[in-house]
Design a protein around this nucleic acid. Structure first.
Length: 202
DNA sequence: AACATGATCAACT
DNA sequence: GTTGATCATGTTT
């Protein structure tokens, strides 16, 4: 797969202001680029979940604004990182207008650049597992709560347009690992991709 | 008490 | 290859 990092092709604010479900769907095939210590990391997003502002009890924003979920209420294109189970971090891209409280959880990626860095922080695992699962994805890109409120419009952190997959290549399912609102089909993934974290129920 | 998880291990197909 | 049980770990409710 040919891929060249090019900030000129980054997704602009308008992309993230769209409906959360649509952003989650369209993020499949896009590339997250981050520059750390003068080294570029890049991965194609292959799995993402939408967390809505309304009628979604699994969304962190369902309880209103709190200290933790505060970044979720920022404008589309902002980063929301939280710590889960005391050990892992999860990265979200905030969507829609400021004050709404919705975001897309990035659950898995296929490494395109910075493989050595990913291996360094993730250990000796097969390449397709380096960024598989939300905790592993965040770990590979070294996201922590320090990154909260950063935006995706800078040369050292942005999302680049890349592949456009037709609907028949995209799986849709219930979200993973939640107890509430698990009837909602808000998880999107690239069918047949080895980096997708959980086995899809279809 | 729950939590948008992952590593490990045993058992299986 | 898969599945299921178990648990580490700290923050939020």
């Amino acid at each position: 797969m040919r891929f060249e990092i090019d900030f000129e092709k980054h997704l602009t604010k308008g992309f993230f202001l769209q409906k959360t479900e649509l952003v989650a769907r369209k993020l499949i095939g896009k590339v997250l680029v981050r520059k750390i210590n003068n080294e570029y990391l890049a991965a194609m997003i292959v799995e993402a979940e939408a967390y809505l502002a309304e009628n979604d009890l699994a969304s962190h924003s369902a309880v209103g604004k709190t200290k933790r979920n505060n970044p979720m209420f920022s404008e589309g294109g902002t980063i929301y990182v939280y710590k889960i189970y005391g050990v892992h971090h999860c990265v979200n891209f905030v969507t829609e207008d400021e004050g709404k409280g919705c975001a897309v959880l990035i659950r898995a990626g296929e490494p395109l650049a910075g493989i050595d860095y990913f291996k360094k922080v993730r250990g000796d695992v097969p390449e397709h597992k380096l960024l598989s699962g939300p905790g592993n994805f965040a770990r590979g890109f070294s996201f922590t709560t320090e990154d909260n409120h950063k935006t995706l419009f800078a040369p050292e952190l942005f999302v680049q347009d890349f592949m456009d997959f037709p609907d028949d290549k995209i799986g849709v399912s219930e979200r993973i690992g939640i107890a509430k609102s698990n009837d909602l089909k808000l998880r999107f993934y690239l069918r047949g991709n080895k980096s997708v974290s959980a086995k899809p129920r279809e």
